[in-house]
Write a protein that binds this DNA or RNA. Structure first.
Lengths: 237, 237
DNA sequence: ATATCCAATGCCACTCAGTGGCAGTTTTTG
DNA sequence: CAAAAACTGCCACTGAGTGGCATTGGATAT
């Protein structure tokens, strides 16, 4: 039925246009939010810059927050697909970890810069709307993971609680690792700020070598996963 | 300076009035939301029922969601206070667990019914607004816990990641335990629904013996905490 | 090529949560 | 009792998000 059963499966013109608007919206949003801040920018401005109607915007993104965090959304989309398909062996938590690391690794070129930009935007916003949205998004992922694992493991009895917990832990590790990364903190370092006090709206030029690139993000997340057992045993001096 | 340095510290008249409006708002909201649903009820109706202006409402609650989940908010308020003050010994996770259980135990009489009502409301709402809010709220708690623990333990070096993870785990266990509770699922039970299919808006009469009361909630949360180590080791058949 | 179909878009009016500002009221304080 | 401070009400306003309907423009069949 589809006109393109060709091995290379060129997406139809219509699909390509949709993809283009999707990206243009994200790009326009990223630019405007970076320039003026998230709350100082209205949706009207974004859709005007992307040359679509406000009504159309909401057919692509669920909210103003969603488009601001588009890079993160892309990650989650691929992550759940990865967990749903990859063969899983060893402990489930290890599977979730390696699936996540692989997904990050395979994200398109330059993704980490866009991701860094949106996380930084969230971290520096006066209102918590964006921060809250990242949390909520990671929870939708957790819920999906739980469902997938139930299906793939034939969820037995009270293993149920354990499965839910696993999803939580995987996302906890991600949140911690990602947070460490955006804060640019070195692992064996103490105290809070640990980076030159730069509340610069847009870091000038290549100053954003993006906190050490994607490899460092991977390392941070990996460390967070690895720290899980030790954290459970942590006791008060 | 305060006019009441009396041992019994009677809160000033002004304080008592504030407390009253706070409760009246929560009560009016709970009633209307239960009757008509969360999204079908406008804020105007709520403030009319409580006989305050909309402007005043926002001086008491941060959002429409916040007042709907007021019982949960009360819990968190007391929980962070508890963690901040109680002496902590043994593993940190155990401290977080027992602090949470104690806090639940000491909540005012009838709290679990209001809590159950608002959780059920969230679970049955067509829009995810309330569900999302519970998640966000638990994260603000997690952030506060992390801060408190840093202060109390003199956060050393990379113990930082572990601390953050601990906060996440405590709240993960809470979320899982509370979810089990509201779903009324028995621990050694399989499958999804596990309760008679009752999407009844208000369970008739005392039908809500509230899923076994507060003790069962405590047990569920305790079980979730206890399941943490086992979940880490869970492997694919 | 032309007629047809249907997905995607644009436009418009609308709801409603949430905010700023200021004037009026009540409690506290001296 | 007067002045200060805290609290409230009213009103206008912003801006996100939605429903409905007409219109455009790829896709498809003849």
């Amino acid at each position: 039925m589809a006109p393109n059963d060709t091995p290379q499966a060129r997406p139809s013109l219509r699909e390509r246009k949709k993809q283009r608007t999707l990206e243009e919206l994200a790009a326009a949003a990223a630019r405007l939010f970076a320039e003026q801040g998230f709350e100082a920018t209205t949706l009207e401005e974004v859709v005007a810059a992307a040359e679509v109607s406000k009504r159309t915007f909401f057919r692509y993104y669920g909210s103003k927050e969603a488009v601001a965090l588009a890079p993160e959304g892309q990650l989650w989309e691929r992550y759940v697909a990865e967990v749903a398909e990859r063969p899983l062996g060893g402990t489930v938590l290890d599977s979730l970890r390696s699936a996540l690391l692989d997904t990050v690794t395979r994200m398109p070129l330059g993704w980490e810069e866009r991701f860094y930009a949106c996380r930084r935007l969230a971290a520096h916003s006066p209102t918590p709307a964006l921060r809250d949205h990242t949390v909520v998004a990671s929870f939708h992922v957790q819920a999906e993971l739980t469902g997938i694992l139930e299906r793939r493991l034939g969820t037995s009895s009270e293993a149920d609680v354990r499965l839910r917990l696993l999803g939580e832990f995987a996302l906890s590790a991600w949140r911690c690792g990602a947070k460490e990364w955006v804060m640019g903190r070195e692992p064996g370092q103490t105290g809070r700020p640990a980076m030159d006090a730069t509340p610069d709206p847009l870091d000038a030029g290549t100053a954003a070598r993006v906190r050490g690139g994607r490899e460092r993000l991977l390392r941070r997340v990996d460390e967070a996963f690895a720290a899980i057992p030790a954290s459970l045993a942590l006791s008060a001096d």
